[in-house]
């Protein structure tokens, strides 16, 4: 089940919990976090290469969740080359997600197939798998240790796919805050067991009762390329029109 960028961060980095938990219980608490019914956000994605050169993408996101199924619309605002590209993803119970994209250069809405999960999302350092909130039961979770990260007490939990073919990574190690069960760092190891990427929360805020990673970084330590995701503005449960999640909106960018 894949999520929008904001939801990814929320799902990955939010939880409630107590103490004396094993790895699976910690992972469940991180996964079963209370979620808002709708979000509307402005997200800046900065792609930074090893020389420090930055490419930016500004995305407006809309998300709603109904009957435990989420729908997401992403509207690319910049750069000019992708401006007004609109992407809709709709989860379906029991069958694959519907995905549609409106490309101004084609002037029409077209269905797209699910990409190979290990492929880059929009040229960023995140893959489609990285944007997926994995069901807890797909992995084996083990509590490695308890330690402080950036002055915050954390559980360090290792997650390994029960079926190796079910993940692009050999395993993941997450630092999950003890006070609010928000993971604030995740190391991702490739199939040859080498550290490939590190995701770090750079700014965590509680907004309207929701712990929100306002700034996070995914760094590929093998290529020295990184992507910094900054939520510039976010609204929870302020009412997102259902008309946004339609082909009509993809075509026009309008709900009326």
């Amino acid at each position: 089940m894949k999520k929008q960028i904001v939801s990814i961060l929320l799902v990955l980095f939010m939880a409630q919990g107590l103490f004396a938990l094993d790895g699976t219980q910690i992972a469940e608490k991180a996964h079963d976090v209370a979620k808002s019914k709708s979000t509307h956000s402005a997200v800046l994605m900065e792609l930074i290469d090893e020389k420090g050169d930055v490419d930016s993408r500004l995305v407006e996101e809309f998300g709603i969740k109904e009957n435990d199924l989420s729908s997401t619309v992403m509207v690319f605002r910049s750069p000019a080359s992708v401006k007004d590209t609109r992407f809709l993803k709709q989860e379906n119970g029991g069958r694959a997600d519907d995905k549609f994209i409106y490309l101004p250069a084609l002037k029409r809405v077209r269905r797209i197939a699910s990409s190979d999960g290990s492929k880059s999302f929009m040229g960023t350092d995140l893959t489609y798998d990285d944007m997926e909130s994995r069901d807890v039961e797909r992995d084996t979770h083990s509590l490695l240790r308890e330690e402080s990260f950036n002055g915050v007490d954390c559980y360090v939990v290792r997650a390994e796919a029960k079926d190796p073919a079910d993940s692009q990574y050999a395993y993941r190690v997450s630092w999950i805050r003890k006070d609010n069960f928000v993971p604030i760092k995740t190391e991702l190891f490739d199939k040859s067991q080498k550290l490939e990427k590190v995701m770090t929360v750079l700014d965590l805020q509680n907004i309207d009762g929701f712990w929100t990673p306002m700034k996070a970084q995914m760094e590929n330590v093998q290529t020295n390329h990184k992507t910094v995701i900054t939520i510039q503005k976010i609204e929870f449960d302020k009412g997102v029109s259902k008309n946004i999640f339609t082909q009509g909106f993809l075509q026009t960018g309008r709900t009326n």
Partner: peptide, 14 residues
């Protein structure tokens, strides 16, 4: 416009 109060910080120019 959702982006209007972000001004130049958004980089969107919108």
């Amino acid at each position: 416009d959702f982006f209007s109060d972000l001004g130049d910080e958004s980089g969107s120019g919108v």
